[in-house]
C-alpha cells in the first residue's frame, strides 16, 4: 500500500521533471525523486542502498548540479523537433524484449532460485575459512568480486577528477580574468 503510493509519487515527479523547463526546479524535483526512491528502498529492506541513494541522489547530486548551473544558465532552450516515430518503435520493442526476458527469471524470494541453491550456501558456510573475514558481505565485496569493486572505484575516481577539472577550470579562468583587469588599468595609466 505505502510502496504503491510512493511509486505513484515517483512517476508523477519524473513526469513533472521532464515537463518543467526551469532547470533549477528540475534539480529540486530530482532531489525529491531520490528521497522518494530512498524511502522505497527502506520499504524493501535494502537499508544500505537507501542510505547510498539519499547521500548521492539527494545530497551530492544536488550540489554538483547546482555547481553546473552556476557555470551555465538555468533555463532550458526549447527546440521543437519532429516527433521521431521510428525511435518510439525501437524503444517499445526493446522494452518489450527486456520485459519478456524477465519472465524467465526466478520469482523474488524463491528459495529454489539458483542464487540460493549453490552460491549463497557456499558463501555462508565457507567464506570465513576461504577469506578470513567474519563479515560475509565484506568478503564478497572485497574479495570474491574484488576486481569488480576495483573497477567501480576507478569509475568513481575518474568521475571525481572530471568534475574537479570542470569546476576548477571555471575558477581558474575567473582568477585569470581578475588578474588581467588591474594590469590593463596600469598600462592605461
Amino acid at each position: 500500500m505505502i510502496d504503491l503510493v510512493l511509486l505513484a509519487f515517483m512517476a508523477l515527479v519524473a513526469i513533472a521533471a521532464v515537463r518543467i523547463r526551469n532547470l533549477f526546479a528540475v534539480i529540486m524535483l530530482t532531489g525529491i525523486y531520490s528521497l522518494l526512491a530512498a524511502s522505497l528502498f527502506v520499504m524493501l529492506d535494502a537499508v544500505d542502498v537507501a542510505l547510498t541513494e539519499a547521500a548521492v541522489g539527494a545530497g551530492i547530486m544536488i550540489i554538483l548540479m547546482l555547481a553546473t548551473l552556476a557555470l551555465t544558465t538555468s533555463e532550458e532552450k526549447v527546440r521543437m523537433t519532429r516527433q521521431n516515430l521510428l525511435a518510439l518503435v525501437v524503444v517499445v520493442i526493446t522494452g518489450g524484449a527486456l520485459i519478456y526476458g524477465t519472465l524467465d527469471m526466478p520469482k523474488v524470494g524463491d528459495p529454489q532460485a539458483p542464487a540460493h541453491t549453490h552460491l549463497a550456501p557456499h558463501f555462508t558456510q565457507h567464506s570465513v575459512e576461504e577469506i578470513g573475514i567474519p563479515n560475509m558481505v565484506t568478503s564478497v565485496l572485497a574479495s570474491y568480486r574484488g576486481l569488480d569493486t576495483l573497477g567501480e572505484a576507478v569509475v568513481v575516481l575518474t568521475a571525481a577528477v572530471a568534475v574537479i577539472l570542470i569546476i576548477g577550470s571555471g575558477r581558474a579562468r575567473q582568477r585569470k580574468r581578475r588578474r588581467e583587469k588591474p594590469s590593463r588599468g596600469e598600462t592605461r595609466l
Binding site: A58, G59, I62, A67, A70, I167, G168
Partner: peptide
Amino acid sequence: LLNYIGVVAVLRFFESGRFGA
C-alpha cells in the same frame, strides 16, 4: 543531516550565485 546539508548548499548557491571562487 543530509537534508540539512542539501538545503545549506542550495541557499549558498542563492547567496553567491556560484560555489567556488
